[in-house]
Design a protein around this nucleic acid. Structure first.
Lengths: 338, 338
DNA sequence: ACGGCCCTAGACAACGTTGTCAGTATTCTG
DNA sequence: CAGAATACTGACAACGTTGTCTAGGGCCGT
């Protein structure tokens, strides 16, 4: 900028005015400066600008994995909102690791992002207190913050969705429904299990721990668990998958079990999955659909309202889910149960 | 930092030394400073640090869409590499729009990223010249830069992959193979069409423009094009899909056509798709697989080598593709062709 | 006892911007 | 035509760091 000023024969401040389209610059002077800018290939240094002005016009997004379909849709929605408000976006994957979540958030804060959208991996957000004091705004998405952390939160109706999905299977005659969910420490997994239990209770069905399997969606484990479930003395006639990846791995496992000799009841099993996924329509898989883009949009809206100065008490929004019947959830039980 | 210095009763520079773990600070002093830091909740301001030091330890990534499976895998691979080198990552979606690509790149440059990885949407990268002069390193991924722009480039072997995929269909007896690709302006689409033509030529088959359809993968258009192709007097017996989304939309369109009355030859069509996708295994779709993660990793490796001072001439790497037979590409033609 | 060295600490400038205020032409008003 | 309002431009400090240089005090070897 100094060089530009020298080249155009004006003061630094005049260049600054031209660069920022501020009024009060003679048209002739402005075009002279503009010419110098082009000639020298000058670009404003935003670090200095940020340092001087205090606001960075950027926000940070921490999700579990940028490559995951669910979170990358959320990512895209937040990106669109940021673009619309003229903000730049940092995104990072926490990889379901609380330490990595904290490191990412603090790295973003060191860059002085104005706001954060966090899908938390950990349960302790005390580390955010100094940042809140410094004026950072944060919105939690998909999962709530740890105890003692007050912040806007946008969730899906996990309990209601799981209840609806399970009830759907029950309505189609199933009495033994297995639940295959994510690791119990994960908020959404616990909530969905709650919904599953509520549906059983509402129908007067017993809760059988032997039908519940929880853990990260690992293909080999999934296959082993399914084999065990289906070869048990009283196997389930339907499966409820606790998340999108579980649904997909169940399909893979079922396919390989069906081809194998010990198919058991694998063939005619009913299946409802929590979370929609690409090609579920073609495969005819009934799902409880969430809307990750809407989740991201809503979180971004909340954040930008805060950034615009909204000081209302924090809110907690639950987005509705939607049951999408496609065949796999409407199959009756293969064999009538006692 | 000033406040911390005052609170600890030391000079600014001493705090700086503690914050940066520089040697030459008495242990007692250091812990006094540390205590003040904790008490005041101080965090270093990276904008000021960047301004002072010149290097930002961050890179920018421009892809077509963060929500797309192919690009989000690439994104993740780049993120991992950045993390490994202690860099922060900006990611933005160009939405296949050259202006937006340029705006994103320039926004990243204004933030003084040290390097860029670009999946270009446009064909003119003259706007990068001043940035190159300023020392920015850039690597192009998936598509080459526009003419006159010299930079490291990592591509997939689009021509070879399409040739192999088409030859695979020919080897299974097909003589009339339709090509359904992306808009012709897109580099990869053109390359893959070239590979398709090479395979035809190598087998002595004529190139029939009536069998080639190109354009953005819009469901409605895809369905209309397929209907037209299949109800023609001499319909294709096999389809080659030019990209992952096209493959998926073809599957959707075929499913709906098969259910409809005018199924035509939809049922027994052979299909090979360029680019693998989730659940292609379950659906039995033969594909020419690319490796987006490897693409990202390779691009990041090249970039970090440049950032480490590598001054060799720019390189252009082509990553091999891999034919994955899963059934749909091994079906013989439904009716023998004269 | 003295010169030199190491360890620790601080003073100060600079990075590239922008906000504030002041100054100088120019035009308007009465 | 005097005085005031206006339009334009510039000088300067400040944002929060870090690199460079300098200074004091203790310790060593001779």
């Amino acid at each position: 900028m100094n060089d530009v000023a020298a080249a155009a024969g004006v003061a630094l401040k005049t260049v600054s005015r031209v660069v920022n389209n501020e009024p009060g610059v003679n048209a002739a002077t402005a075009s002279r400066v503009q010419a110098a800018i082009e000639r020298l290939g000058y670009r404003r240094n935003d670090s200095a600008r940020i340092l001087r002005r205090g606001r960075t016009a950027s926000i940070g997004l921490v999700i579990e994995d940028v490559a995951d379909a669910f979170y990358s849709s959320l990512n895209r929605a937040v990106e669109d909102a940021a673009l619309h408000h003229g903000y730049l976006l940092f995104t990072g994957s926490s990889q379901e690791d609380a330490d990595r979540e904290r490191d990412l958030v603090l790295a973003f804060c060191a860059r002085r992002v104005d706001g954060l959208i966090i899908v938390p991996a950990g349960n302790d957000h005390g580390y955010l207190a100094p940042e809140f004091d410094a004026g950072i705004k944060a919105v939690f998405a998909d999962r709530p913050p740890g105890a003692g952390c007050e912040a806007d939160t946008v969730l899906c109706d996990n309990v209601g969705g799981a209840r609806t999905g399970t009830a759907h299977l029950i309505a189609h005659g199933h009495r033994r429904i297995a639940f295959l969910g994510d690791a119990p420490g994960i908020f959404t997994a616990g909530e969905r299990l709650r919904g599953y239990r509520q549906a059983l209770a509402a129908a007067g069905l017993p809760y059988d721990e032997g039908l519940v399997v929880m853990g990260p969606p690992d293909p080999a484990r999934m296959r082993a668990d399914l084999t065990r479930l289906l070869t048990a003395s009283d196997p389930p006639t339907a499966l409820f998958a606790g998340n999108g990846r579980a649904t997909v791995e169940i399909l893979r496992a079922l396919a390989s079990l069906t081809h194998a000799a010990d198919a058991g009841a694998a063939g005619g099993l009913a299946l409802v999955g929590f979370d929609d996924f690409e090609l579920a329509d073609l495969l005819g898989i009934t799902v409880v659909a969430q809307d990750p883009a809407r989740l991201g949009r809503t979180a971004a809206d909340l954040l930008f309202m805060r950034l615009a100065g909204n000081e209302e008490p924090t809110s907690r929004i639950e987005l509705a889910t939607r049951l999408v019947p496609r065949g796999s959830g409407e199959r009756p039980p293969l064999r009538a149960v006692g």
